[in-house]
């Protein structure tokens, strides 16, 4: 019997189906063995990194936000009270609202720490990222202005150039102020205005973003860090008097 060949048959289609099958099988294996978390600034996203120079009171030093993270952290497997969270404020020293509300952030940076007997939660690392919102009247910041704003020293004008930086409310900070004058971190975090706050879990996941919420940052810390993690892990706290 003479074999009839399919002259219209094409190895390309046949092979195409084989290759697509290999492709799909590979993607299935990857998706079944990993649970990727997208990088972003919505709650549940992995927070983008912040790198650069930060002023810590004595000088400008290298800063890497990821150095704060403990990737092994989880509610079940770790000592939640010993884990360190991160609160970040994106600000501009010339932004009037930042200037007028900064005292609360400074107080928060000293309150949410185990050194404070009134706070029964983990240490929360407060960080400020100072940008320069160019194009707005009086918004011409500099490293000297950031230092003056942080330390409350005289000689630099903040608040759109209207007030000396030393006249802001609250005490001097003891937290790092990251130089984001070129707005690179601000853009990476999709921050549309200042001040904007983010609470980051010890494993680097965004727990709360102020632009997605009506809460203030202390309310968010109490709700998320205290109620969801501390009380959930140690229910006896509730029984002892509903702290």
């Amino acid at each position: 019997m003479k074999i009839k060949y399919d002259v219209n048959g094409d190895a390309r289609i046949d092979t195409g189906l084989t290759v697509i099958a290999i492709f799909i099988a590979t993607i299935m294996v990857i998706s079944l063995t990993t649970s990727p978390i997208i990088t972003g600034t919505k709650e549940g996203d992995r927070a983008p990194n912040i790198t650069g120079k930060a002023y810590n009171g004595s000088g400008w030093e290298d800063f890497d936000l990821q150095a704060y993270y403990d990737y092994d952290w989880s509610l079940e497997n770790n000592n939640t009270t010993g884990s360190q969270w991160v609160m970040i404020e994106f600000l501009d020293t010339d932004c009037p609202y930042c200037f007028n509300s900064i005292a609360e952030y400074q107080e928060g940076s000293q309150y949410f720490t185990p050194e404070n007997p009134n706070w029964d939660g983990p240490h929360i690392n407060f960080i400020a990222s100072a940008a320069e919102l160019t194009g707005l009247k009086g918004h011409d910041s500099s490293r000297e202005e950031i230092m003056a704003f942080r330390d409350k020293t005289t000689g630099e004008m903040c608040n759109s150039g209207n007030d000396d930086c030393s006249t802001r409310e609250g005490a001097a900070f003891a937290i790092p102020f990251v130089d984001d004058l070129d707005k690179s971190n601000m853009n990476k975090w999709d921050v549309g205005g200042t001040p904007t706050y983010f609470l980051i879990r010890p494993d680097g996941i965004v727990a709360w973003a102020s632009h997605e919420s009506d809460e203030t940052f202390p309310q968010a810390i109490y709700r998320i860090v205290y109620d969801e993690y501390i009380v959930a892990l140690h229910p006896q706290i509730n029984a002892q008097g509903g702290e």
């Binding site: 590979t26 990857i30 990993t34 978390i37 997208i38 990088t39 680097g204």
Partner: peptide
């Protein structure tokens, strides 16, 4: 192909922390 697939796997693993 295998090495490229591995880089995607690594990328996903890194995103998990």
């Amino acid at each position: 192909f295998i090495i490229s697939s591995m880089t995607l796997w690594i990328s996903n693993t890194i995103s998990e922390g």
